[in-house]
Design a protein around this nucleic acid. Structure first.
Lengths: 352, 352
DNA sequence: AGCAAAAATTGAACCGATCCAAAATTGATG
DNA sequence: CATCAATTTTGGATCGGTTCAATTTTTGCT
């Protein structure tokens, strides 16, 4: 079988310089039509597959692709609700920009470092759901633009895009309070890696994940303003899975005066909670109102359709892609507002 | 701001040859520890970010990544059920192999050609749900290994991996017939781009999509063997969406003697059908049995849990990745068997 | 110490294009 | 026909590493 044909071969066979041959492919408008056609003809004849991407790349230094990275198995991108929604938005933006998307990930730090180190991209979008710090550290090595999403810690030196968790949570709580609820419980996302179950004030104020902490604080602020002592409302940490959520709800509703509303820090938690309430014969929103957070696509088609705080996913994705491509510079943390989406899972408490 | 540091600079500063410096990073085991450390120290001091991927690449000629391509918007990969499941498997395999995954797509042919032409990958996996022919043509240009999945046409010159649609469908029908059903209807995936609604024999035998045709023929074979005239069982083409499926089921159940079982060529169709049956007050599997095809993840959690023919997704993904990476050679069409997964949506017909 | 074998290091070629300044060609004009 | 400007083409430098044959250094053994 023939050797791999390169530009040089084509140039020689067509009797032009390599420079001209190169122009035929990458800037056809500057070469005389006659020459252009001859070169094309020769190329076709020789079976030349067009300029090698790698060669071009080396010269250009730009790949025109963004890498999305997470400390998770690669399949995380296709399985996790939030990641999926975000990826859909990110890929749409990349489509518009004509940029490619590469998925980069590994649970193992060493492997991840290698993958991040060798990904062919112009910049990274970091999905920092877990181990955000490490992910950022590893990415820094690469010396490419990057931006962190959903990062827990609030280190101002890392470019990050996040939502206003505090005010989002406050608005969620205000919605519930505005409906007239007074007995309320909170279902939290992870506060610390090793914690599940009832949480106290200290644990919350010192939570490892600022997302969870800020949302809790937002809820509290609204409760306080409504004259309810935040410390009197039960707050349970969950792992955002069925088991820990059901356990938490079970414990909450075992109390003598169970709540009439639940503030859930994620739609996933909210949906598991709704699930459990149905199974235990309670009606949502008839007996209990539930409000989620994030507005994942499933929230709109769940039964009942979930009331929740929507993250401006589209804008997050746009900013993230621009930052990763180096088109804009994100310094410190860029905070975006959330909006309340009222659907069917919240209603005034049943009149006594 | 300093210039970009390159390997050469590090080598000079550390007083070693560029070759040695290169080895420090890519084959550390062959350089003396003392030297290795000195070079690393210098590199750190200079702020060297590790060997540039591009440079390495140019030499190596291998990217160690597979591209997955489709004639769809990029977000298709995160939104479509089947694509998602497949991608999850593909990415797991790539994880194992230490290979990266790049998503390549566009609805527009020209853009797609450009994207495929400039994707930094070692090979392609083609998701040929639609316009498979064109996708293959475009990919061929690139002169890299590729393999087509779910391709409709059966051109033996394109390396493809598919499932045994004929026998899978036959087994599905045999399951239904084995339960005692005799009045049956078929809901088909697209037979031709322009067709929806009742189909006749000619249409099926000349279907544009061999997947649909083979499944239909498989059903017929089983029906025939059970002494039922295939031409007497209604078969409706759908677009695999809610509208066309509901319409088809409505029409089917408007007949004086409606069927007691439905053979659906995809889980998506099956789920929409179940949906409609519930809405019209019929019980599944009490009144009507429904069997799907594909075994998407949702089939296992639907209500009722869907009986279906499982595609060996894991193996498909493994073969596809190996082929795209050029590790194995797929010639012509490689056909994999499907397996029956009995869940809750099928049962014997109600005794008369 | 002497010498062969093993290990480490070097230097230059090479991967496949793009880019740019300089040279060659073409065309218009006086 | 000479001159000048505009258009094309050329050759060689460059991007940032890897690799391999050749060379130098180290090690092991007598």
């Amino acid at each position: 079988m023939a050797e791999k044909i390169k530009l040089k071969d084509v140039a020689k066979a067509a009797g032009v310089s390599q420079g001209t041959a190169s122009n035929v492919f990458s800037r056809p408008e500057i070469v005389r039509e006659e020459v252009r056609e001859r070169v094309h003809a020769v190329a076709r004849e020789l079976g030349y597959g067009g300029p090698s991407v790698t060669g071009r790349l080396l010269r250009a230094g730009k790949v025109n692709a963004v890498g999305v990275a997470a400390i998770e198995p690669l399949s995380y991108f296709f399985e996790d609700l939030w990641a999926r929604q975000l990826m859909a938005e990110i890929s749409n933006i990349c489509d518009e920009r004509g940029a490619g998307v590469a998925l980069v990930s590994a649970r193992n730090d060493e492997r991840l470092a290698w993958n991040i180190g060798s990904a062919l991209v112009d910049g990274f979008i970091l999905l920092c759901v877990e181990g955000g710090e490490r992910l950022v550290d590893i990415t820094r090595q690469r010396q490419l633009p990057y931006v962190a999403l959903a990062i827990g810690a609030d280190d101002q030196s890392v470019p990050a895009i996040g939502v206003d968790n505090f005010n989002g949570a406050r608005m969620a709580a205000e919605h519930i309070l505005g409906l007239g609820h007074r007995r309320i419980a909170i279902l939290s996302t992870m506060l610390r890696d090793d914690h599940v179950g009832p949480a106290d004030e200290a644990l919350i104020r010192q939570a490892w994940y600022s997302t969870s902490r800020d949302r809790a604080l937002g809820y509290w602020q609204a409760l306080q303003a409504a004259g309810i002592d935040p410390l009197s409302v039960p707050i349970f940490g969950t792992r955002e899975d069925e088991g820990s959520t059901h356990a938490a709800v079970a414990q909450i509703f075992a109390a003598p005066e169970p709540p009439t509303a639940i503030l859930a820090m994620s739609d996933k938690i909210a949906m598991y909670a709704v699930d459990f309430l149905f199974q235990s014969g309670r009606n949502v929103p008839g007996d209990v109102s539930v409000i989620g957070f994030d507005d994942v696509p499933e929230a709109a088609v769940a039964t009942p359709k979930l009331t929740t705080m929507a993250q401006p996913m589209h804008e997050i994705a746009r900013l993230a892609v621009d930052a990763a491509l180096g088109d804009i510079q994100v310094e410190g943390r860029r905070v975006l507002p959330t909006t309340l989406v009222v659907r069917e899972s919240t209603a005034p408490p049943r009149a006594k």
